[in-house]
Design a protein around this nucleic acid. Sequence first.
DNA 1: TATGAATGAGTTTTCATTCAT
DNA 2: CATGAATGAAAACTCATTCAT
Lengths: 198, 198, 198, 198
Amino acid sequence: MTDSQGSTRSRTAGAKRQRLMRAAAEVVHRQGAERTTIADIARVADVPVGNVYYYFKTKDELVAAALSEHARQLELLTDHLDRLPDSRERLKGLIEAWVGQRDLAARYGCPTGTLAVELDKRDEGGLDVEAGRVIRLLLTWVEHQFRELGQPEPDGLALTLVSAYQGMSLMANALRDPAVMDREGARLLAWLDSLEAA
Amino acid sequence: MTDSQGSTRSRTAGAKRQRLMRAAAEVVHRQGAERTTIADIARVADVPVGNVYYYFKTKDELVAAALSEHARQLELLTDHLDRLPDSRERLKGLIEAWVGQRDLAARYGCPTGTLAVELDKRDEGGLDVEAGRVIRLLLTWVEHQFRELGQPEPDGLALTLVSAYQGMSLMANALRDPAVMDREGARLLAWLDSLEAA
Amino acid sequence: MTDSQGSTRSRTAGAKRQRLMRAAAEVVHRQGAERTTIADIARVADVPVGNVYYYFKTKDELVAAALSEHARQLELLTDHLDRLPDSRERLKGLIEAWVGQRDLAARYGCPTGTLAVELDKRDEGGLDVEAGRVIRLLLTWVEHQFRELGQPEPDGLALTLVSAYQGMSLMANALRDPAVMDREGARLLAWLDSLEAA
Amino acid sequence: MTDSQGSTRSRTAGAKRQRLMRAAAEVVHRQGAERTTIADIARVADVPVGNVYYYFKTKDELVAAALSEHARQLELLTDHLDRLPDSRERLKGLIEAWVGQRDLAARYGCPTGTLAVELDKRDEGGLDVEAGRVIRLLLTWVEHQFRELGQPEPDGLALTLVSAYQGMSLMANALRDPAVMDREGARLLAWLDSLEAA
DNA sequence: TATGAATGAGTTTTCATTCAT
DNA sequence: CATGAATGAAAACTCATTCAT
């Protein structure tokens, strides 16, 4: 009965909204927020342009949605890692996940990092703050692991680790070389191993 | 005192071109390439919009000019550092220069790094390659210092150092916190000190 | 009575597109492609400038549309003439149609011919080829009539006839004298009559 | 003494003016008046842009100069043909000259004809009248030959011949086929031969 | 809600023409 | 006269957003 016309419709309400969020996350990662048009996102989400505005009142809301989609992905990852019994292993799992994305990173950089770079150049809208929030999410989780490991200054270590990730993603991207992810990833893993146990 | 009417006229030929390059570098750093209009740059350089095209045929050429202006700044810095007798001191001088820019970094990130991020999301124009070239310039200089220090794998060390710089700039920017530059800068200095002499 | 507000709204969908095509054909004929602005066409079609791009992505597409509008007019004419039983009469009908347009020809020349002249001075876009195609349409129809008449070398005769039309239109236009169309038209009619029956 | 700085200067005053006229004629023929910029002409004439305005106050004056350059070329040709003793031979010589230009015609059409087509689409400036004048020059010369041949209605014959030339040039151009010039040229020669002597 | 179409403000780019030297 | 540079008025094109069904 529902979806009798098939094609673009989906079963549950909100499915369209989700398609739009995912499309926004993907396209904005690839093209950047500024070069992405509403029409681009609508096309990928298979939603008519005019209809987008029922789910997101402005383009900025769509970019915010892209950000929270990335936050969601991050949570999926950390939730998964949280099942590991050892904090050190969790951190190593995180790094391995990063390295696993090396081709994407070499082509488009870290989704959240590059978006933060772009949004930080705006004055209005507060989207820059939103981007910072997502990065802080990661920072907090990492800090938590270092604390569990009994490390002194877990916040400083967390900052170092996340900075390293952002740095290596940016370099891999700028040099268009995925090997950067491998080399720096390996270095980070060795560094983690070298840390004293509590 | 001279130039009392103050506006568009300047003493030497080519001065306008230079004003435009500097304005482009500055405005693009602050606003990003995409959000910067030719009119923005023209205003800062105090040049009529139509006249900009006498010096730069397209907007892309202006962005390229901004990039090479950053490359020039980098060369000024490394030329200066090259006067120091010790390679380790040169590298420490570099880091101190980075930290010295902490407020700018916290507000707008590393000029070259953020520009690379933005340009890498384009397919056409080859400006992304240009951005990579500037970063490679830095990489090469740093590698040279590590080699002089007699370090094994100077290229890997250079990559680590420059990545760290890009990472900390991005994090300072995303968190809007200049202290990031201080903390990570100090860590890098300590790391340099810890390296064995040849 | 309906459409009392009278301006941009129309009954059927696609009506606007058609209005734009016709306006393009008319204005381009009068002003030439180069001197015609999108705004000119938009004004005549009573469509807001920005909206034109919903129907035609570039100005070149609008010029192509003007060309195909002329092709359509030509087909209407030949379809009409095809109802005549005798090929010779069809050709004479064609010439009479040309002469019937003498005032328009004296003022602006043959729509397709003048457009071809203008477009052939371009290198890019391939619109010149498009213009050639429309002229070939006419050539082919005329050739078909000569063949039915049992004439030897119907292609050569067709070329002569269409060339004569283009020549007389150009001369009428350059001299601003519609009488040119009458005189040369009469000559062509006499020539047709003088051709041997098969 | 004069021309001590060499390079772009030329011996006689007015040489620059001549270079500009020739360049205008050539470039306008190739690109059309509208697509030709002052800078294009200046480049071909090897004259600095700013200097053009000492010789021609507006772009329209340059186009007029292009026209009169074509008129001059025409006069050179007819002066040359006038040396032939027989009028019929003079007309045949004219046609042969046309056919001799077949490749240029196939690429860019008749210089005067195509310019007339373009200029006739303007309202202001009176350049259209100027173009008509050049064509009338040719018409008058041809008519004179037919009159000398003792033909009745020499003006009508002249119109027919010049129309034929414009038509075949336009068709050769539109079809991008120089062979059109050969075929129609041969037809015109045969036609001339078929005319009764007085 | 759904949808194609409409709107208008903004941006890059081009060029004839003018100006200062 | 000569010349590089300046100027400003178009013009094409883009797109977020809104509107009429």
